[in-house]
Nucleic acid binder design. Structure first.
Lengths: 185, 185
DNA sequence: ACCTGAACACCGTTCAAGT
DNA sequence: ACCTGAACACCGTTCAAGT
């Protein structure tokens, strides 16, 4: 009558990487309500509680996702001699990351415990770089806020062509901001 | 055995205004998870389902809240002759509204159906005003994004003194942006 | 018009128990 | 170490029924 308990004889262990991948698609394919511990477990063919072993609770899951997504922003950014070029690169990649996973960004905003050190790394790197080319301390916040807003707006692009156009508009705005606050000397 | 059904003889009708007031405090006093239809109803001494009669479903509730909060932004803004002064006033009030109800702002971000026409009115007014003093079309987005980001950050102020200081920093940044994109002629 | 209880289909998370 | 079922305390929302 009762189904078998415990770890099944042939049971495959679910990989942490798979959890994160599937979680990310659940988050992106819906309106943000698609990612639940139960739905995630079901999609992975596993009991909800087994997830807790790999990623902790829901905030832990979000933090892991945030790490995975935002780490890509820092990867392959060589310390350029040209500060301005490095700033552009960093922000463009960040903007893209937000645009690719807007629901993740919103979820993190609403879940302070989900903040990962990676985002801190990004903003720290940006502030030190910006300190080299401008004396306006608020420029960093302005740039990051705009990356958020514009990145989130990217979600409402109707097709790839429009998304491309919005990306270019962002680049333009970014250049304009840098020009006006830190004119190339 | 069974408790009475239907409208109680002396039952007071719950007022829509009370619903919104209590909903707003539930939203603000917690970490954003405090506002649920059931908790709201309980606080009002009413069954959850009675709420649906007044504000519709959860998205309707959020839209009503958004209207109440953001309408105050537009109120008492006389059309000033000085475009720049009006822009400053509009954004400062918007920034304050976001800062006072950060969780509402986040909830609306995550719930597109909750968008009220009022926010559209605000951005429309801003765009037409900005068109008068600058040719950079993205300035409007930059200003609104920064109002969002800085307003949301206001939530993490540890005391009123610090909040005041952050408000002033926002003003400063706003002026700086306007100066650089639309220098007073 | 306005409020009610019951019901449906969900949630996150803890726990003790299996292998 | 890793997975399990059962249970607890919640959700939003629909429905038919009361006054």
């Amino acid at each position: 009558m009762t189904r078998p308990r415990g770890r099944p004889a042939q049971g495959k262990t679910v990989a942490r990487d798979d959890i994160l991948n599937v979680a990310l698609t659940l988050l992106d394919e819906g309106d943000g309500q698609g990612l639940t511990m139960r739905a995630l477990a079901a999609r992975l063919g596993v009991t909800p509680m087994s997830l807790y072993h790999h990623v902790g609770d829901q905030a832990g899951l979000l933090r892991a996702l945030s790490e995975r997504v935002y780490t890509e922003v820092l990867e392959g950014i060589d310390k350029l001699v040209d500060h301005r070029a490095e700033i552009r690169m960093l922000l463009t990649r960040y903007h893209q990351a937000v645009g690719r996973h807007p629901q993740l960004t919103l979820a993190i905003f609403a879940t302070p415990e989900a903040f990962s050190g990676v985002t801190r790394e990004i903003t720290d790197r940006l502030t030190t770089l910006l300190a080299e080319i401008t004396t306006e301390p608020m420029l960093c916040h302005i740039l990051i806020d705009h990356a958020h807003g514009s990145g989130l707006a990217l979600a409402s692009a109707r097709n790839e062509r429009q998304a491309q156009a919005m990306q270019e508009q962002y680049q333009h705005a970014l250049d304009s901001l840098l020009d006006r606050f830190a004119p190339p000397s």
